[in-house]
Amino acid sequence: MRQGAVRLNDVSITYDRLLAVQGITGSFEPGSLTAIAGPNGAGKSTLLKAVMGELSLSSGSIERGTSKGSRFGYLPQAAEIDRHFPLSVADTVMLGMWGRTGAFGGVSREAARKGRDALQSVGLEGLERRHIGTLSAGQFQRVLFARLLLQDAEIIMLDEPFTAIDAGTTRDLLAIVKRWNGAGRTVIAVLHDFDQIRAHFPQTLLMARRPISWGSTETALTPENLLRARTMAENLHGHPPGEGFAA
């Protein structure tokens, strides 16, 4: 078993003065499959970015265990990538080989073959030369999964991977997620579909800026907890967090 859980100790994150994540404690065990759920603006994306080390914490700490360069793979929320950028599908997927090619290295024959295999496993063989701007949302999501496949990361973080994706593609991509998990990788996914979480994700972190529950999905997604999440969501949207209403 790989050692090195990702452990959060009382993590809080602020943007300017806006408190986006407050007091989260817990850990993502090695090889676990965890869903992060919560209303819009709950701080889910913010938390993922902090785990990657992209945002700095305003208090608390994150232990990342042994930290090699290519340990994290990250799928950003769809809106964060400019799909009109003039890149081909093949080039985009090959970015996943960054750990080996680096900024300047060439792409070996072996690497190119791996790239084709990755495209095949997401069902996009034959689209190598297409421009990413011409893909549908679902096809583009498959491209990003192919890139993650190549990245060979220990910890894979997916921000709303199945939003605006049809049932068939979701099924295919979920199968890939399960395969990653079966191979001992840690997978963390932000999701909004509770049925999907109950069916496929053993662990859940439910949050609305503050943690509501974190543990096995059954105990985390009780009706009371969901109700609490909804009440806290009204506070999130109705009033700027950090000003009053700190219960």
Binding site: M52, G69, P76, L95, A103, Q151
Partner: peptide, 11 residues
């Protein structure tokens, strides 16, 4: 194209 990716691979 994807600055977040470059950061995630320590580029």
């Amino acid at each position: 194209f994807d600055p977040g990716f470059l950061r995630s691979v320590r580029g």
